[in-house]
Design a binder for these strands. Structure first.
Lengths: 210, 210
DNA sequence: CCGTTTATAGCACGACCATGCCAAAAAGAA
DNA sequence: TTCTTTTTGGCATGGTCGTGCTATAAACGG
């Protein structure tokens, strides 16, 4: 047993304060002072766990990326588990549920989306964040590609569809929905988000036009 | 003739300096000092044309919104001009060209997309920018709705498609493409952007799967 | 008990910022 | 010319920021 509190736990608690500040006031307000106040700590305490502002931002960004990826892979494992074969309907539901993790359907996911988009936008001009933005985007693209490729192999993809292109299109749609819903939360209701997602998934299948 | 330079022209020149700073260094660097330096003016001169930092940002945001809308409506007029009936192929080309104005296909459009997304993101936590973000988003949604409705009426839309929903989906795709290409410019080539857009438009038509 | 490490708290400095205010220069009107 | 208005330049204030550094307090090892 370490001292009295786990330092790693402290760091994650501070990271959560970062998330709250970013979601509420924007990433430009995520200063050491504001984050320390949000976490109920003195600025010196925060600096004891993080060498500086940059390290705090990098840690928070990696923490959020890990959280998102954990959510997604949980769904992906259910989808690809060979021990329990799934019906096409079940697969559709799992895919929709997995991709819905990237949409701001409730407060928790809304915070995650807003925070992530803020970090991704900041990475455009901050080299130290760049790598992690690329990492998650690559992961998302690889995930959608695998899902679409699996659908193609079992004939549940519209014939003639280019898997790589459709993966790009699906990622862009998810990003766009997340962006708009995060920025205009009262204009894009959760059921609208889900309806658009389901429409897109349906349009990808060769299915009967019932 | 006014004094020696048109004050409105000055204001637009300063706004262009704002655009360059935002695109190069991010919106958080768009301070009065940095913008004045970029415009080759003293900080006092900029303050002579703008009451304060907020007014400068609002003016620049409106200027960019007007620029984007001018581009889009130019295409829309060609599309809806009743004096020169267009073939379905021509209409497709005009629609694709119009929507491509929102994608960062060259340096000019890339600057516009980056600047606009920066403003839209800033509007989330800055009430004075909120209205203009909503304005352009509503305009874009109305435009896509009109285009899709026109296509539906002339039977060039996949039967059973919900126009309102498809307009949302199209807007989300455009936003997502713009977002990703603006953030990862070396990862999303212009031809990929166009290919995704064309794929989406094709999937909206009932057309022959040739 | 004492010494060492860890944690918390905060001061002080320099940098950057927006803004109120003022002064000088430039341009037009008389 | 002289007067007025516009334009430009900049000083001073008060604020926030990151960070180097120090000081107190707490927990641990002996």
């Amino acid at each position: 047993m370490p001292k009295i509190v786990d330092p790693e736990e402290r760091r994650r608690a501070v990271a959560e304060a970062v998330f709250r500040v970013i979601c509420r006031d924007g990433i430009e307000q995520a200063s050491l002072r504001n984050v320390a106040a949000e976490a109920g700590l003195a600025i010196g305490s925060v600096r004891h766990y993080f060498a500086g502002h940059t390290e705090l931002m990098v840690f928070a960004m990696r923490e959020m990326a890990a959280r998102l990826m954990t959510r997604l892979t949980a769904h992906a494992e259910r989808l690809l588990d060979p021990s329990a074969p799934l019906s096409p309907g079940e697969q559709r539901e799992i895919v929709a549920g997995m991709l819905a993790e990237l949409l701001p359907l409730d407060d928790e996911r809304r915070t995650e989306v807003v925070v992530w988009l803020s970090f991704a936008a900041a990475a455009r001009t901050r080299p130290e964040l760049r790598a992690y933005a690329d990492e998650l985007y690559d992961g998302l693209l690889a995930l959608t590609t695998r899902v679409l490729e699996g659908a193609r192999r079992s004939g549940r993809l519209r014939p003639g569809a280019d898997v790589a292109l459709e993966a790009r299109r699906l990622c862009a749609l998810l990003d766009g929905l997340a962006l708009e819903a995060a920025f205009y939360p009262d204009r894009l209701e959760p059921d609208t988000l889900l309806a658009v997602l389901r429409t897109h998934l349906t349009a990808l299948t060769p299915g009967p036009p019932s």
